[in-house]
Design a protein around this nucleic acid. Structure first.
Lengths: 155, 155
DNA sequence: CGAATAGTTGACTCCAGCAGTCGGGTATTC
DNA sequence: GAATACCCGACTGCTGGAGTCAACTATTCG
């Protein structure tokens, strides 16, 4: 899991499309203007988003990008994963037990993978649509369960 | 919220102390050896951990560090926060609406702060003791609730 | 006392990766 | 065929993390 402005920008741009595309594709110039992100940078990001199949492009005048699927069908996690490179495996990362500590799984290994999973689940369960159509959020009640599940594994 | 090997190392080291300290302080040399982290780097980290009041030090021969509190009383979150600097505010971070987009709160703002909170809650609810005394974990059931709370805010 | 141990501090180097830019493409529309 | 807008790769600057080094201070123990 990784979070940078890259991922943030991508999500913002996707939301922008969701909000302003009325069937018509939305040009990067518009997005750049509205979201205050340089167009050149957006081009980079949208290259990846397109390859990931999250958006479709239309060239020529009147062209731009449109969402490949319903916004209620695009989890935020997909966007992040598409633009943020799969961070290099530093010691203890992902599910593989590559070089944790002396070839063995380090004592905190499960903690990190659990955290990563937690984040992915969270961002995977929230769609573009969710982000657009809501304001003020709070979550708290889930905490206790989170701990329960960590301490006394289900599997 | 930020995650780097810094935070990981710190947690590993703290666990190491928790496991090997039988009343006696544990020296950095030992930890460095067992966890395969350079001692010089550990020195840096422990400087912060000490200032944060998470460990106590004893100098001289036979010296080292010991946990300032019971391991069941040290949430992982505290450790991370102690060593990972409070990341600089890039555009849209923390709770402040500094420079999101043109002075206004950007459309994804709540999403990020919610994610950060989610991580903090998770790591804040897990103590050193939890990490040590468990294996294989899974959490999943919390996801649905997380989404509920995001989409239909309680407050 | 003095030597060995081990924490304390601050400055320093190295480098991957992010943020952002530029220039030249190619497809499409009108 | 001109304007629009996506497409692509290369390039730059720089921050911050990872790790090193050296000199210092406090404590123990013989």
């Amino acid at each position: 899991m990784k979070m940078s402005t890259k991922g943030r920008y991508a999500v913002m741009a996707m939301i922008d499309i969701g909000e302003h595309s009325a069937g018509q594709p939305v040009s990067l110039a518009e997005i750049a203007e509205r979201q205050d992100i340089s167009q050149e940078y957006l081009e980079q990001l949208f290259g990846k988003l397109r390859k990931a199949g999250l958006v479709e492009s239309a060239r020529g005048p009147g062209g731009g990008y449109r969402l490949a699927r319903e916004d209620s069908d695009i989890p935020v996690a997909d966007i992040i994963v598409a633009v943020d490179e799969p961070l290099r495996v530093t010691r203890c990362e992902g599910d593989a037990v590559d070089g944790c500590v002396k070839g063995q799984k380090c004592c905190a290994h499960d903690l990190w993978s659990s955290l990563g999973r937690q984040m992915m689940y969270f961002l995977g369960s929230i769609t573009l649509d969710d982000v657009v159509s809501r304001r003020n959020l709070a979550l708290a009640a889930t905490v206790k369960q989170a701990k329960e599940h960590y301490v006394r594994p289900v599997a």
